[in-house]
C-alpha cells in the first residue's frame, strides 16, 4: 500500500468508526420498532434479576426487562438528538442568515439577544422550558432545540458575514445574480461544511442534554425508557444490580463518541480544499 493511500485510510478512520457506532444504535432503535423481548411495561419478572434467561440483561427494580428498556431508550436518544438538531438547525440558520444580512442596528440587537441566550447554560434554559410544560419527550426536544438554535444562529451569522465579504460574492453580483440565488449558490454551500460539523457535534450534546433532563425527571415520562431516567432509577441499587447503571451509561457514551467521530470525519470530507490535502 502506498504512503498516500495509507494516509487516506487513516484520515477516514474516525468517520468509519463513528458510522459503525452510530449505526449500531440506529439498528437497535429500528429493531425496537418491530420487536422487543418484552413489552416495556411488563413487570412479570423478578425484581433486580442479574443477566440470564429469559431476561438477557436482567430486570430493574420493578421487574421490567432491561434489554427492552435499553432498546426503546436508543429510539428516544436518537429522536431527541435528531429532533433538537432539526429544530435548532432550522431556527438557528434562519436567524443567523437574517442577522448576517441585517442592517447594523438590527444585527446588534440580534447579536445581543443571542449572547444573552448563550450566556444561559443550555441545560438551565432547557430546564426552564421543560418546567413550564408537562414533561415529555417533545418538551425536552423543544427546550434543547431552542437552546441550540442560539449557538447555531451565532455561528451562522459569523460565517455568513465572512462569506459576504469575499470577492466572489461581488463577482457573482456584478454578473447580475439576484440575492436569493447568491444565497443558494454561494452562501449556503460555503457555510455548509462548518455548519454540518457543528450540527453533528450539537447532536451529541443534545443526546447528553436529553439524558440529563430525563435524569432530573424532565424528559420522557414512563413507560418510555430514556437512558437518563434508567440511570436515575438504577442509581440506588448500583451495588446490587450494577448492569442497570452500566448498560445505559455505556450506550450514552458510545452514541456520543460515535457522533463526535462522525463530526470529525465530516470535517475532512465536506471541504474540497481539505480533500486535496488528503490525497
Amino acid at each position: 500500500m502506498s504512503a498516500q493511500a495509507r494516509t487516506a485510510r487513516r484520515r477516514s478512520l474516525p468517520l468509519t468508526a463513528g458510522c459503525v457506532l452510530v449505526g449500531l444504535v440506529v439498528a437497535v432503535a429500528v429493531v425496537s420498532l418491530f420487536w422487543v423481548p418484552f413489552t416495556p411495561d411488563d413487570t412479570s419478572g423478578d425484581r433486580l434479576m442479574p443477566p440470564g434467561l429469559p431476561h438477557l440483561l436482567g430486570t430493574d427494580k420493578l421487574g421490567r426487562d432491561l434489554l427492552t428498556q435499553l432498546m426503546i431508550g436508543a429510539r428516544i436518544a436518537l429522536a431527541a438528538g435528531a429532533g433538537s438538531v432539526v429544530l435548532g438547525g432550522v431556527i438557528g440558520l434562519a436567524a443567523g442568515l437574517a442577522a448576517g444580512f441585517a442592517t447594523r442596528w438590527l444585527d446588534d440587537v440580534v447579536s445581543a439577544l443571542l449572547d444573552i441566550l448563550i450566556a444561559f447554560p443550555t441545560l438551565l434554559l432547557a430546564m426552564l422550558v421543560a418546567a413550564t410544560q408537562t414533561a415529555s419527550l417533545t418538551s425536552a426536544i423543544v427546550a434543547i432545540g431552542l437552546a441550540m438554535s442560539a449557538i447555531v444562529a451565532r455561528l451562522t451569522r459569523v460565517l455568513v458575514k465572512r462569506v459576504l465579504a469575499q470577492d466572489y460574492i461581488t463577482a457573482s453580483r456584478t454578473s447580475g445574480t439576484s440575492w436569493p440565488r447568491v444565497i443558494a449558490e454561494h452562501v449556503l454551500p460555503n457555510i455548509w461544511p462548518t455548519l454540518t460539523v457543528n450540527l453533528a457535534l450539537q447532536f451529541g450534546l443534545a443526546v447528553l442534554a436529553e439524558a440529563s433532563l430525563s435524569y432530573l425527571g424532565l424528559g420522557a415520562p414512563p413507560p418510555n425508557a430514556s437512558w437518563g431516567r434508567m440511570l436515575a432509577e438504577a442509581q440506588a441499587s448500583v451495588f446490587i444490580a450494577p448492569v442497570g447503571v452500566i448498560a445505559p451509561g455505556v450506550l450514552i457514551v458510545l452514541l456520543v463518541v460515535g457522533v463526535n467521530l462522525v463530526a470529525d470525519g465530516l470535517r475532512d470530507v465536506a471541504d474540497p480544499t481539505r480533500r486535496r490535502r488528503r490525497r
Binding site: Q166, D167, Y168, T170, A171, S172, R173, T174, S175, G176, T177, S178, W179, E185, H186, P189, N190, P193, D271, P272, T273
Partner: peptide, 28 residues
C-alpha cells in the same frame, strides 16, 4: 432599485479580481 440593477449587471460587468483566489467560489 435593486431589481433594476440586477438586470443591468451583466450588461456592464466587472472582473473583480485584485486577488484572483478570492474572486472564485472555493467550493464550486
Amino acid at each position: 432599485p435593486e431589481r433594476r440593477l440586477t438586470r443591468l449587471r451583466g450588461q456592464v460587468t466587472s472582473v473583480v479580481f485584485q486577488e484572483p483566489l478570492t474572486a472564485l467560489d472555493p467550493l464550486m
